[in-house]
């Protein structure tokens, strides 16, 4: 009897989820049906004409997103580990500043960042944008929450007894137990960088230095849709690469084995 109820409930949950999925998917299906074939045909036109500017934006976006991704992910995951596991001075202060800088509107931070980047002569330069975008407090907090919850104190204590130092703990316990966390932070950091709009708008002037989301504004019209749809491809690629880890769970580390 209870197994029959169980099956009925599972079927109901599946139906509900599929109904919601189709509801969310509808506008996308509509978009593709209404405009898909024309857009696909004119993709080549957009990339080959416009004096190759779209290709330049694509190159800038890739260089910016991938370099800043490496810097942001490594710095934020290691920081999350240190703040959660190690004994360091001003720990709560650092967490508080991380939180404040995550919550402050970009409007307040954009001009100071512009002034600082200008002081090191990197305005209108993709490297200035890379440095200014590599600070990723969201990833630090997510990593901090992961390490604080998923790495049992006993395990860290045993690591210490085995003679592991801070780096040893990170290499031998932190990294192997946090592969799924890395995937999640990589995905969200990439998403954030790839779609980044406000900061590039403040730091870059020359249209040839633009990234794709900024360029999209100039193209506003049917070409926006083509480039916009193409912009989804790298995000979907990163999502599919990281989905296996996400499926296993953010915390599938020491606790769940």
């Amino acid at each position: 009897m209870s197994s029959r109820i169980e099956k009925r409930n599972s079927r109901f949950i599946n139906l509900t989820l599929w109904a919601l999925t189709i509801f969310v998917l509808l506008p996308f299906i509509w978009l593709i049906r209404q405009a898909g074939p024309q857009y696909i045909l004119s993709t080549r036109f957009v990339f080959m004409n416009q004096n190759g500017i779209v290709l330049a934006w694509l190159k800038n976006s890739l260089l910016f997103s991938l370099t800043a991704l490496g810097l942001s992910v490594i710095s934020s995951v290691t920081a999350g580990f240190v703040l959660a596991i190690l004994v360091i001075p001003f720990r709560k202060f650092l967490l508080f500043i991380t939180l404040v800088t995550m919550l402050i509107p970009i409007t307040a931070m954009a001009l100071p960042l512009y002034v600082l980047v200008d002081k090191v002569h990197l305005t209108d330069n993709i490297w200035g944008l890379i440095i200014a975008s590599s600070y990723y407090p969201f990833g630090t907090f997510l990593s901090y929450l992961y390490f604080v919850s998923a790495m049992p104190g006993d395990l860290i204590g045993m690591g210490r007894i085995d003679g592991l130092g801070d780096w040893g703990l990170f290499w031998h316990l932190g990294i192997p137990l946090s592969r799924s966390l890395w995937s999640v932070v990589i995905f969200f950091s990439f998403l954030n960088l790839w779609n980044s709009y406000q900061l590039p708008k403040v730091l870059l002037n020359d249209t040839r230095h633009y990234t794709l989301p900024m360029g999209l504004e100039l193209l506003y019209g049917s070409s926006t849709a083509i480039v916009g749809v193409l912009m989804l491809i790298p995000i979907l690629g990163v999502y599919l690469l990281s989905q296996q880890a996400i499926e296993r769970g953010i915390f599938s580390g020491a606790v769940t084995g």
Binding site: I74, S75, V82, L86, I88, I97, T101, L113, I131
Partner: peptide, 13 residues
Amino acid sequence: MISPYLALMLFCG
């Protein structure tokens, strides 16, 4: 280990 983050936090935060 936390120094890259601290440098970024200082400069960009």
